[in-house]
Simulated scan of single mutants.
Amino acid sequence: MAGYIFTLDSLDSLKSCIKKGCYSTNLSAPKNGLWMIHHEGTFADYCGMKPGDSVYFFIDRMIYGRGEMVDIEGDCKYMNYPRALWPSFPEFKNIKDEMLLDDESNLCNRCVCFFKPSPGFFENGIDMDDMLASNPQKIRMLRTLWKLSFIKVDEEEDQALRDAILKRNEASIGSSVDCFNHDSAFHESLSSKVSSRHSLSVKDVLFSCKDGSKLRHEMAIEVAVMDMLSRCKESIFGRWDYVSHQVAASPFKPIDYMDKMDVFGYRKIEGFGTISKYLTIEIKKDAAKKDVINQTMKYVDWINQEYAYGDYSMIEAFILASDFPEHVVKYRDEVCARNYMKGRRPAISETWTNLKLIKYKYNELTGMLDFEQL
């Protein structure tokens, strides 16, 4: 499973989150009746959460863990109140009875996720430098934790975080000693409150961002894609066991200058833990231009180098845009090929051309996006 590292501002906040077994991002208000890009990015992150995903907390250089997301009435994440993703600021008196976190201060908490200690949240945290040094080859996303409420990490990085925390706290495993307190009463109380109206729905996000058949923000398209790939076993993009967005795809450098893949994922061989395919999706809200072809191929080469280790056949790449002019399609056909050797005895020469072009369109009837392969 994946893992999440949530940032908090104090130990009191940490104790409160762990005791209740829930986390919710405190979002700023929408501006002029519209979500901003950073709001949409947070919603995309929540869309990817699944029961069993690991939970860690980051406070003042220290990392605490570990817990895991739990299924409460069918899911591990919900809207805090019905239509919480509509970009308005509701009156507390009108929604109080339907709020999962029901204090007036929680109006800005639009989404909430639930977790339990597994095996426990140890009071003995690990300094960020020690964590990075514990397994530098596997820890990638932690290095990009900057100006974010939380980040998602893949299975390898999750395992590296878990290993470091468990080794540091081996003597406390299976004991409540030196662990933060968790009370299951809050989870139990939710059974009578959670309903289908709390299910995380991205329709309001897409509707508020629509501009005819297109969306105004590429991040809103990421929300739709993350939602679909996390929920659906099959889609026009295929089946993927792990998906994330805004994933670093360049050598380490100042965060603001790092290249990031809009969507990244991988698929395993069914019934086994072996990764067989990697995914990258580059998203453009308007018609694609030639430079997006080069940009996507740069990400293909990065995945080949960092994840597939020379085997281009493991990579499936997509560009998602509102339209593709003929000259862009022609350019794709001209330059999107990679020759590589597969195997050694015998050595087999192969050519990779697996870059697909997908058009999107906002559907007024369904409130979702429709996709069509060119």
Rank of each mutant, 00 (worst) to 15 (best):
Gln159Cys: 03
Gln159Ile: 07
Gln159Lys: 14
Gln159Tyr: 04
Ala160Asp: 01
Ala160Gly: 01
Ala160Asn: 04
Ala160Cys: 06
Ala160Met: 07
Ala160Gln: 06
Ala160Ile: 10
Ala160Pro: 01
Ala160Ser: 09
Leu161Asn: 00
Leu161Gly: 00
Leu161Arg: 02
Arg162Ser: 11
Arg162Cys: 03
Arg162Thr: 11
Arg162His: 13
Arg162Gln: 10
Asp163Val: 09
Asp163Glu: 14
Asp163Gln: 15
Asp163Asn: 14
Asp163Pro: 12
Asp163Arg: 15
Ala164His: 01
Ala164Met: 14
Ala164Pro: 00
Ala164Phe: 04
Ala164Arg: 14
Ile165Met: 14
Ile165Arg: 04
Ile165Cys: 03
Ile165Phe: 12
Ile165Asp: 00
Ile165Ser: 00
Ile165His: 06
Leu166Met: 13
Leu166Cys: 01
Lys167Gly: 01
Lys167Phe: 14
Lys167Ala: 04
Lys167Val: 07
Lys167Ser: 04
Lys167Glu: 14
Arg168His: 07
Arg168Met: 13
Arg168Cys: 03
Arg168Ala: 14
Arg168Tyr: 11
Asn169Trp: 07
Asn169Gly: 00
Asn169Val: 10
Asn169His: 03
Glu170Pro: 00
Glu170Val: 09
Glu170Thr: 02
Glu170Cys: 00
Glu170Arg: 12
Glu170Gly: 00
Glu170Trp: 02
Ala171Ile: 14
Ala171Cys: 07
Ala171His: 13
Ser172Pro: 01
Ser172Val: 10
Ser172Phe: 15
Ser172Asn: 14
Ile173Trp: 09
Ile173Glu: 05
Ile173Val: 15
Ile173Asn: 07
Ile173Tyr: 12
Ile173Ser: 00
Ile173Met: 08
Gly174Thr: 11
Gly174Leu: 07
Gly174His: 11
Gly174Pro: 02
Ser175Leu: 15
Ser175Lys: 15
Ser175Cys: 07
Ser175Gly: 00
Ser176His: 11
Ser176Gln: 13
Ser176Glu: 15
Ser176Leu: 12
Ser176Cys: 13
Ser176Ile: 13
Val177Pro: 00
Val177Ala: 05
Val177His: 08
Val177Cys: 06
Val177Asn: 07
Val177Lys: 13
Asp178Ile: 02
Asp178Gly: 02
Asp178Glu: 07
Asp178Gln: 11
Cys179Tyr: 04
Cys179Ala: 10
Cys179Ser: 14
Cys179Phe: 10
Cys179Val: 14
Phe180Gly: 00
Phe180Ile: 03
Phe180Asp: 06
Asn181Pro: 07
Asn181Cys: 09
Asn181Val: 13
Asn181Lys: 10
His182Leu: 04
His182Gln: 08
His182Cys: 06
His182Asn: 15
Asp183Asn: 13
Asp183Val: 05
Asp183Ala: 01
Ser184Leu: 08
Ser184Pro: 11
Ser184Trp: 12
Ala185Leu: 04
Ala185Val: 02
Phe186Met: 09
Phe186Leu: 09
Phe186Ile: 09
Phe186Thr: 06
Phe186Arg: 04
His187Ala: 02
His187Leu: 09
His187Asp: 10
His187Ser: 04
His187Tyr: 11
Glu188Ala: 09
Glu188Trp: 11
Glu188Gly: 02
Glu188Tyr: 12
Glu188Thr: 12
Ser189Val: 10
Ser189His: 06
Ser189Leu: 05
Ser189Lys: 02
Ser189Met: 08
Leu190Arg: 02
Leu190Met: 07
Leu190Cys: 01
Leu190Gly: 02
Leu190Ala: 00
